[in-house]
Computed example of a mutant assay.
Amino acid sequence: MTTLTAEHPAATPSSRQSHVLADAVTMLRRNLLHIVRYPGLTIFVIGGPVVFLLLFVFVLGGTLGAGLPGVDPAAGREAYLAYVMPGILAVTIAGTGGGAATTVSMDMTEGITARFRTMAISRAAVLAGHVLGNTLQAILAVVIVLGVGLLVGFRPSAGPGEWLAAFGIVALISFAVSWISVALGMNAKSVETASNLPTLLVLLPFLGSGFVPTGSMPQWMQWFAEYQPFTPVVETLRGLLLGTPLGWSPALAIGWSVVITVVGYAWSLAIYERKSIR
């Protein structure tokens, strides 16, 4: 008797979808176990942003906060903590990309992915397991880093609706970063290269409005700073948590997240398919 699977040509659309979901849950469980067994990556993902938070607020915050528009110099540090917190959250999300790229690259180089390709497992589900696991890790990291921010004096004014919307933005950009990081990890020739490539994502919040207003940057840099993917994410989180004007930031944040997700998904699947026929 033949068992219908997600890859079986005789499977109906509904049965194919159910198998893909079941395979994705199995792969997600595998990646969550990997995160539990190797907590060093999670600790690093959380530790880096916490260090940045403490450094920028308690060492540089007084000076940087006093330079913010309309801020009383005497309250510079408190004002800067409120300003920089969304940027720190963006760095946290971007920093999780290294873990996704590393784990998928390890699977590729150690032959685990090749073994999956010989089994009746949905190819999209294999990749989705990495993506969903990393997305959950990113959300957990954001919650912990936000908790540290609250401990050192961050006081958002958001209501339940704004918190829910902020959570949605965090989940969406985390999902997008996970897909592009998986693609980078699959395309890398070694685990070392894979772990370094997503580091470029961490630079984007620094080159946007995460740490200083874009208006304070040189004219030639301002256009990039204002329209790169993480600036609308930061401005959306800042508006939702602190009540600053949102403008077009939510639409741009969602748009960038969708574009990055589609590119990461298509690129990852193309690499998977190409290596499957070798």
Rank of each mutant, 00 (worst) to 15 (best):
S190P: 06
A188P: 14
L81G: 07
T96R: 04
N31L: 06
G98F: 00
L240Y: 11
F58M: 04
A11Q: 08
V262T: 12
G133I: 03
T96W: 01
P213D: 08
R238L: 12
S14K: 05
G147V: 01
T236E: 05
L200M: 14
T5S: 14
Y83V: 01
L64M: 15
L81S: 06
I35N: 11
L21P: 03
K189E: 11
E273D: 15
I88Y: 06
E192S: 02
Q228P: 10
A194F: 09
T92R: 11
A125K: 10
L184Y: 13
A24L: 08
G133P: 06
P245S: 09
E226G: 01
R278T: 15
I260Q: 01
S122V: 04
G99D: 02
G111V: 07
T12C: 05
V152P: 02
G62K: 12
S268I: 08
A22H: 09
V45Q: 15
A124N: 08
V142A: 14
G210E: 02
L246W: 12
G61N: 11
P86G: 11
T5A: 01
F154Q: 03
G264K: 06
Y272V: 14
L204N: 09
V152F: 02
A166F: 07
I112W: 15
M85V: 01
A225Q: 11
T26H: 12
A6M: 06
R278F: 07
L140Q: 04
F230G: 04
R115W: 12
S14G: 01
V50F: 13
M27D: 09
V91C: 05
A66W: 12
G208E: 01
I277N: 13
S181E: 06
L204I: 13
F154A: 09
P73F: 05
V177I: 15
I180E: 00
F44K: 00
P9Y: 09
I260F: 00
V50W: 11
T3H: 12
I271H: 11
S190G: 05
L68G: 10
T92M: 11
L81E: 04
L237M: 13
G159Y: 13
I254R: 00
V202A: 10
A90R: 02
V50S: 13
A166W: 08
R37Q: 13
L81Q: 06
V91D: 04
P86D: 09
W223E: 10
G111A: 08
P213S: 09
P13Y: 14
G98A: 05
